[in-house]
Design a protein around this nucleic acid. Structure first.
Length: 498
RNA sequence: GGCCCGUUCGUCUAGGGGUUAGGACGUAGCCCUCUCAAGGCUAAAACACGAGUUCAAUUCUCGUACGGGCUACCA
């Protein structure tokens, strides 16, 4: 039977990078095995689900290049089927109506409550099967339900035995039934609960392999019990190690902010292939492979569930240091992609960046196309994100240069003679007949000799005069890229900064 | 509290009964050089701890510690 996997996010916020990685691994596994990759939006929590989140998830997957097969499924559309399944289990005696009035529970301190309740239970000794309605006759149960008494539906867990499954990543997993309480399938308001919905939908979508975060590992036993009650085939499971924050806690929106959102990476100038590559290597590594830069095709070819790790991975970043706003390796990988991508693939991304920065000009695709490609190719060597093209790279495409104070101090203000030398150099350059990398160098060096100054002085001063910065490509390439007339104008203008 | 999972340089990781414990990011230094990168070379940097098995344990087993997850009429 061919592999069918799914990515099933809940649309309660942006796409979390951990979720994005789950999607990626599912996708890779599907493509690797020639299987099918499905997408299901788990929007059953109508309080928190938003259309905007759904849109953001779809955009995120598209950005990462993860296309899904078949129709998108919205879990909320199947609520009736989930309800019917639960009621069917009641009829079959595999589940029962619990008429205990619903407890009020404040979401904020659930974890604490659970711990307290558990502590209590362990001192008194609990019986998960002690529910008084567990053995109510079906007739009585039906009668009370017909009379309109509210009830939740609970799955009847056997008193003896244990469940087990072989996780493709974590190995054999066993859990005694005594540790599992009769879990609620349907709320008293008729709303189907997560574990039921997931199982029903996975059955209906004919999912063969459930690949998801490790946070679901222990709940899997409950889901298996639901599969069994429903008489459905149990899929294979593979749980993925969690991605942790530097403080070793689960990465979360509330605590760690935008660094966990996939859209942040898009908005801050990441190349999809680079971020995808980075994500793939977080919690997975290809067998006997030292190369880390891998295309989607290579990742697909190398991907195996056996290569998935069991220990969690720390996503390393620092709130204190803006240069480390995200993992340094991700940043390095993005830079690597920026300088090695075929220029034709990079250009559209730069264009998008320029359009949003207001730097785009139509002639970059027509009369100045060649110049544009050459200039981008020149400056990309030392850039980390696409943002750098409109930031540090601005001087090549606009005339309102921003001068870096440190650069001005270092390259212009230190030598008073530059006040005369710069315009004079400009004058000299203006006279060059054929201005290019070679003649720019000849002119500058000759002028330096005549003026009895080191070429380096003029080179560095020119760099700041022309680009506003202290760092950049070889200066003669810069002259060539910026062109004769603009170079002359900027050299003259820079005298005021000396 | 109970159950489950994990632990190799700061981080991502390779490896696996005998290795100088390998690579990548980051850090430092050198080379190159008109600056900064890139590139090349080099350096510092790790098997959580304790027992057991064994001629030999970082690797296998068991404990301990630490970290994480789950435990809800949330998803």
């Amino acid at each position: 039977m061919s592999v069918r996997v799914r990515f099933a996010p809940s649309p309660t916020g942006y796409l979390h990078i951990g979720a994005a990685r789950s999607a990626l691994f599912n996708w890779l596994y599907a493509r690797k095995t020639g299987g099918t990759f499905l997408l299901r939006i788990e929007d059953t929590d109508f309080q928190r689900s938003t259309d905007e989140s759904t849109r953001s998830i779809l955009e995120g997957l598209k950005w990462l290049g993860l296309d899904y097969d078949e129709e998108l499924v919205f879990q909320s559309a199947n609520a009736d089927k989930h309800r019917a399944a639960a009621l069917r289990l009641v009829e079959e005696g595999k589940a029962y109506r619990d008429f205990t009035p619903k407890e009020q529970r404040a979401d904020a301190n659930v974890k604490q409550e659970i711990a307290e309740r558990a502590r209590h239970a362990s001192t008194e000794g609990t019986d998960h099967r002690a529910n008084p309605y567990r053995d109510l006759s079906l007739e009585e149960s039906n009668r009370r339900a017909t009379e309109g008494e509210p009830f939740a539906v609970r799955l009847k867990i056997a008193r003896e035995g244990h469940s087990s499954f072989e996780d493709a990543v974590y190995g054999l997993q066993e859990r005694d039934y005594s540790e599992i309480e009769d879990l609620v399938l349907l709320r008293s308001d008729g709303h189907p609960l997560y574990n039921l919905s997931v199982v029903c939908d996975d059955i209906e979508m004919r999912i063969t392999d459930v690949v998801r975060g490790q946070d679901h590992l222990t709940n899997t036993h409950k889901q298996i019990l639901i599969y069994e009650a429903l008489g459905a085939a149990i899929p294979r499971f593979a749980h993925l190690p969690l991605i942790l924050a530097p403080n070793k806690a689960k990465l979360s929106k509330r605590k760690h902010g935008e660094v966990v959102s996939l859209t942040t990476y898009r908005d801050r100038g990441f190349i999809p292939a680079a971020f995808r590559n980075f994500l793939a290597l977080l919690g997975w590594s290809p067998a006997g492979e030292e190369k880390e830069i891998m295309s989607l095709a290579e990742l697909t070819e190398k991907f195996t569930l056996e290569g998935v790790h069991r220990s969690p991975a720390v996503f390393n970043f620092s709130d204190a240091d803006p240069r480390q706003w995200t993992d340094q390796k991700a940043l390095w990988m993005n830079a690597e992609y920026i300088r090695t991508l075929p220029i034709e693939e990079l250009l559209p991304m730069v264009r998008a960046e320029f359009e949003s920065a207001g730097l785009w000009r139509a002639e970059y695709e027509t009369s100045k196309r060649e110049w544009f490609a050459k200039t981008i190719d020149l400056i990309r060597q030392r850039f980390y994100t696409l943002k750098d093209f409109s930031g540090q790279g601005r001087a090549y495409f606009a005339d309102d240069i921003e001068f870096d104070d440190a650069a001005v101090a270092k390259n212009l203000k230190k030598e008073p003679r530059l006040k005369e030398l710069l315009p004079a150099l400009g004058q000299r350059i203006a006279q060059v007949k054929t201005f290019n990398v070679v003649t720019a160098e000849e002119t500058l060096r000759a002028f330096a000799d005549e003026s009895s100054v080191k070429a380096g002085l003029l080179i560095n001063a020119s760099r700041t005069a022309l680009t506003g910065q202290a760092v950049g490509p070889s200066m003669f390439d810069v002259f060539d890229a910026i062109g004769q007339s603009r170079s002359v104008a900027r050299l003259r203008d820079a005298a005021r900064l000396v």
